[in-house]
Structures are given as structure tokens and as C-alpha cells.
Design a protein around this nucleic acid. Structure first.
Lengths: 334, 334
DNA sequence: GGATTATATGACACCGATTTCAGGAGGAAA
DNA sequence: TTTCCTCCTGAAATCGGTGTCATATAATCC
């Protein structure tokens, strides 16, 4: 049923019906007639038709690498919470960790004329720059910083620094590093720099033989940790760029019979569920994923409503959770 | 830029432009002219405008209780994989475990004229029945069975039966049950029946003092397990309706100093990451969540294309993963 | 050669809404 | 009584596309 039929059914004009749904002068008499007709027919205006006139779709695009990653899911849940309150609906773009697909979704969402886009960013390429600049749409980036656009990100450097320092201050002197690609500015480069900063504070030189990168998975944490743990002089503590990687490394340590935390301390970053229930509860930095989603959504809505500058940077803090995996009860120093 | 402006720019008629994007007779000459103009201007037709005529939006609605639940995320990832291939995009409705919101989203998505809906169902109410019947839209239900509609579900009864039997056949004689509300037909009622079936096969009577329900979380598994584990004669094995609950219960066991699996065997259902890395690797039934998403998407697409009956039931099987938490090396019987 | 068919074209009606606009009715102020 | 404002109304234009249709040309068939 369309507005013309419905208006006839209700005995009013199309304009009156439109005013009923969108506000505008309308006598009580007609208002009630329409309300009654709505109840009887279940009529509701077509979103497609209305967005063709209003140029707003009530849609927000969310682009993310993987749904089954707890951090992404939590960010998205934060986004959903806020946007739904304001009557928006979420359009999902899952890239399967393929940066080219991020760009593809930007354009796909643009075609669909979403009102704004939130990008859970991973790696930036030249194509990203072009896509951003030709987007002409409110955009908020989560997890990475990118000049000229609104971003919500974590204090990756600070968290990595604090965690590494925590291990060093408990006596570790041969720190190992199991990170992710430095193409990822936040989880790769920033956390690496945090690690280095802690080392230099303890007058330690980074040892390339004790450093390695992995994918964002438990499995690869397990696989890649082998090189480090079988090195001639193996590390006495291990900073891992994510909880998943840390869990994988920890499994390897258990298999090798290394005692945790005495022979080997381990840290992750993120504070996902998995670290809490591991054989040795994982020392990690809690990152505020859901808050990031909430803040990103608020920033985006403000941008849509033109209440906010389109390039505001929000940096969320972290919280160190000192648990078994890096907690030496009889540590010499604290 | 709209089609009229663009047609003028390219030096052709509106109809030619439409044919360019939708197929239809078009001379090479015009085709090239339009292609050139597209490259120069970046023009693309408005989805809203086209769906107003075609009555298809290229949108599929997915309604789910929680994004940060691994099982939901995996189903959704399966859905995304298939639908994206076919050029559809996903509209997300997160209900935060509120069945009323499921109904709300059904109507919201209908207003938006999505081409179909996939519902990761939890609990059915009277309102659901009404909403389903007045939907008039392709619909596939995942995780539960509902007569008259296409469903993709797991063999919940079979999995629970097999797991319980696995524990009983290793010598357990006082089985405990930590389930979820039986309002949930699949995870609640079916798994409960599977548990009972195994008991009766071993000529055991269910003991109400050893049975309890919990929410779907680790925390509540931990909380609710207390009653069972501090019962006068505590159980010697525990069937938990989900992995999360099992992990919570296992934490409690460790704290109480119960040796696993000798004093207490534990099972979960689902095979989520968390069970694999727990202190004692969790015995569980792998449910094929991603496959469920894939199948549901295929079913829905077939329904949209009118190639499939709207009430086909798919029941996926399971796979028992016998791990530490319920694996007595020296078990008397197998 | 005439009939048929395949290819190609653009004007125009149409999809289902919103918004403008001209104007009517009623009340208050001058 | 006139003027002005507010409240209310529906016809019509508009948004940006798609689909139909009448028409034209060229190729093919008998």
C-alpha cells in the first residue's frame, strides 16, 4: 500500500499523511483519522521513497576487518548502542582483513548514500587517501589516527610501555617481542615503540633475535613464538601485541615446560575474555573497545548534525591488569 | 549529480544511461561515451531511487542477540560471506538479548523494505508469531526451529546426549546439569532432553539438587555452579549447556581445589575459542556456526529468487571434541 | 521484394514519498 | 470593518531513477 491508496483509505490528502509522519500543521480530526487508518492497515511510508527527497537514509555504514574478533565486536556493539538510540540503522561491511575491501566498501556505502561511515581501520594505503578525499561524507576512524579526519584511538604506545616496564621491573632482562606488522600504525608501530621506550629506560638494547611478528590469531602466536623460545639464549619475558598472540605463545611455553611467570613472563594487549580464563591468567592492558565505539558514534552523529568539526582526535586511556602471567610474587623490585 | 545531468554531460538520453547500468540494447558508441563520462564524473545511480521502482533494496536484515558472542559473530560472518558475493548488503539489528526487540527489528526492517531477514533466534513469544505472519518477507531462522518457516539449527539434543554419555561411560554416576532457561527451545529444552536421554540409558534418575540454570555468560556459570558444587553430595561430572557456562564452572572447580577430570568432569557445547585455551581444555561439541550462517544465507537467497520453499528445515550435525576436562586416561569403560 | 526479426533509440509515465505554494478559515488587534 | 497573523489544506512540482512504448533502421528469411 502506498501513500496515495492510504490517503484515500483514510479520507485525507497525501500531504496530510506526510504531515502526520513528519510533523507540520494538522488538525486533530485528521490526525485521529490517520492514526486509526494506520492501526487498521499497518501502513508505513517507504524509506526508499522518502530518502530520495530528504537525501538522508538513516543508515550508518560500519566497516570492520572481522566480526569474530572480540575487539571489533565490542566496538561495533558500542556503535550500535548509540546510533540505534538516534533512529539510525547499521550497514555492515566485513573486509576479512583485506584493506582493499575497506576502500571498496567506502564506495559501496557512498552509493547507498549512507549518512555517515565508521571505519575500524587497520592499514592505510594510497587508495585509502583517495577514497577518503572523494568521500564527501561524515567519517570517523576507529583504532588508528589519520590526519584530517575524526579518530578514536587507544594509547597503544602507553599501554605497551607500561606492560613492558611492568615485566622489566620484576627482574626480566631479556625481553622478547612478538608483535604485528608495522604497517598497522597502532597495533604494530605504536606498541613497538612503547616496548622500545621501556627498554631504553632500563638501558637495554633490543635484540633482533628476540623479536618477531605474527598475524592477529592464537594459532599464529603459537607458531611464531617458536623462533623466540628456541633461540640460543631465550627471552625471560615476552611482550605480545595482542591477547590472542599472547595466548598462543603461552600455550607454547606450557608445552615446553617453561614455568610461568618464573622462567617466562607474558603480556598481551586488549583484555579480551580469553586472557582471563587462560591457564595462567594473562597480564594485559584493558583497552576500552566499547567506549571507543560509543565515542565514535557520538562523534559521527555530531558530524552529521553539523555540530562537530570533522577532524577531532579522541585518545582513550588504558588500564593495566596485572595477573598471573606476569606477576612474580617475590619480585626483587616493584 | 543525477541521471538527467549526467545524461546531458555524456550526450545521451536518460534511458540510455539506465540501460548502461541495467542492461538492454545499447550501441557500442553510446556505451563508450557513457563509460568515459562515468570515469570523468564518478557518477553512479542512487540506490534509493532505483529501489523505489524495482522494489528491491539489495539489503538483508540480520537480527541477533549480541555481537560480542562468538557464536553469533561466526554465524553472521557466514551470512556475510554468501550475501556479499551476491551483491547484497547486511543491515544489523542487535537486540541485547531482548526478545521484544527482535519483533521491533522485524518491523523496522520491513519498513526499510529489506529483501529478506535472517533471525538468530532465542526465545519465541506470542508477539513473534504475529510478527512472522504479518511479515510477508523471505525469512530464515537460525538456531531454533519454528514451524512454517525455514530454519537452520543444530542437533542440540544429539550433542548433549553424546557429551553426557561420554562422561557417564567414563565412570561418572552423579551427573550435574547447568543449563539455560527452557524458554530457549534449542539451548534450553533440547539440550536438557539430551542430558536426560543419556541418564536414562544408564538407568540413572535426574537429581533436582544437581540441576540449575544460568545466563549465557562465564560469570553466571561461575556464580550458579556454586549451588551444585557445594551440594551435600556433589556431582562427579557436570554437563553445561554452553562453553561459556562450562568455563565459569571450571573456574569455580579450580578454586575449590577439585581435580579435573578425576574428581569432576566438565563439558560445554559450542566449541568456542575460549574452551580451547582454558586451564583444562574443554570437552565440548563443535557446532557449525559459520556453516549455519552460510546455509541460512543460501536458503534466504533461494527464497528471494523464488527457487525455494519457504519452510525448509536444515539440521546441522555436531562433532564431539574430547579434551582434558572430560578425559580420564584410565577410565574403566569407554 | 515484402515480411519478419533483431537492434537501437528517446519521450514519457511512473514508483512513493516530501515540500512548496497559493489560498481558505478563524481569531485578535487596530 | 479592515488588517494581520496563525492554523490548516490539498494540488502540483519534485526527488532520481526504471520500464513501457512507439518508432526507426538494418539484417535475415521466404
Amino acid at each position: 500500500m502506498n501513500i496515495t491508496e492510504f490517503a484515500a483509505y483514510a479520507g485525507v490528502s497525501k500531504a496530510a499523511v506526510s504531515r502526520y509522519f513528519n510533523g507540520g500543521y494538522l488538525s486533530d480530526e485528521k490526525r485521529q483519522a490517520i492514526q486509526k487508518a494506520v492501526e487498521e492497515t499497518g501502513y508505513h511510508p517507504s524509506e526508499s521513497a522518502r530518502s530520495i527527497r530528504t537525501h538522508r537514509t538513516g543508515l550508518i555504514g560500519v566497516i570492520l576487518p572481522k566480526l569474530s574478533s572480540e575487539s571489533c565486536a565490542r566496538v561495533t556493539e558500542g556503535i550500535s548502542q548509540i546510533t540505534v538510540q538516534e533512529g539510525y540503522q547499521l550497514l555492515l561491511g566485513v573486509t576479512a582483513n583485506n584493506p582493499a575491501k575497506e576502500v571498496e566498501y567506502l564506495s559501496l556505502f557512498k552509493q547507498r548514500q549512507v549518512d555517515g561511515i565508521i571505519l575500524l581501520a587497520t592499514i592505510f594505503t594510497q587508495a585509502h587517501r583517495l577514497a577518503f578525499d572523494s568521500l564527501h561524507l561524515p567519517l570517523v576512524i576507529v583504532g588508528q589516527q589519520y590526519p584530517g579526519y575524526s579518530c578514536v584511538c587507544h594509547d597503544d604506545l602507553g599501554a605497551a610501555y607500561a606492560l613492558t616496564k611492568l615485566m622489566l621491573s620484576q627482574g626480566a632482562r631479556r625481553p622478547g617481542y612478538l608483535g604485528v606488522t608495522t604497517q598497522d600504525e597502532a597495533a604494530g608501530k605504536e606498541r613497538y615503540q612503547g616496548f622500545l621506550k621501556a627498554l631504553s629506560e632500563f638501558h637495554l638494547r633490543p635484540d633482533p633475535r628476540l623479536m618477531c611478528t605474527a598475524q592477529f590469531t592464537i594459532d599464529d602466536g603459537y607458531t611464531q613464538s617458536q623462533k623466540l623460545l628456541t633461540a640460543p639464549r631465550r627471552p625471560d619475558c615476552l611482550f605480545c601485541a595482542t591477547d590472542n598472540i599472547a595466548i598462543g605463545a603461552m600455550q607454547r611455553c606450557r608445552e615446553m615446560g617453561l614455568s610461568i611467570p618464573d622462567e617466562m613472563m607474558i603480556c598481551g594487549v586488549g583484555d579480551t575474555k580469553i586472557g582471563q580464563v587462560a591457564a595462567f591468567a594473562l597480564t594485559t592492558a584493558r583497552l576500552h573497545y566499547k567506549t571507543a565505539g560509543i565515542d565514535a558514534a557520538r562523534l559521527l552523529l555530531a558530524q552529521i548534525a553539523n555540530r562537530e568539526t570533522p577532524s577531532k582526535i579522541l585518545r582513550l586511556d588504558y588500564e593495566i591488569l596485572k595477573r598471573e602471567s606476569a606477576n612474580r610474587q617475590n619480585s626483587e623490585t616493584m
